[in-house]
Amino acid sequence: MNGDDHLLEDRTPGVESHEAMASVLWYTVGLGLAIVATIASFIVAQTSLLWPPGISVGLIVLALAQMGIHLVFFLHLGSGPDDTNNILALAFGVLIVFLVIAGSIWIVANLNANMTTMPIK
């Protein structure tokens, strides 16, 4: 039983023998899911069936989903003990990326709103 536990632990992504996670099948599943997400994004962007103001939000959600697919299936980011540091670093990176993008948009929109109209030269 102890041996079985250890075998499971050995299947964590990123270690030397990670046959269970890094296999041709694993990559192919990832490719399939990524293609589905890509095609869905392009259909959502061009369809007239959806409520137009909601399309951007839908596209962003699809992009985040596809990034998750890439992280799990191509970069083999998992929940194993060897990935704890990678996940923590990723969480910090995501925080900084979010602060930079959302903060810039927020601050500049605020500046724009408070700007008096300039005469056109």
Binding site: F42, S56, L59, I60, A63, Q66, M67, F74, L75
Partner: peptide
């Protein structure tokens, strides 16, 4: 190389797909 593909997903969505709305 995989990370570049992740960045491209962002470019494709923000620049191209949202850009043509």
């Amino acid at each position: 190389w995989h990370a570049l593909d992740i960045v491209w997903v962002g470019v494709m969505t923000l620049v191209y797909l949202i850009g043509v709305q």
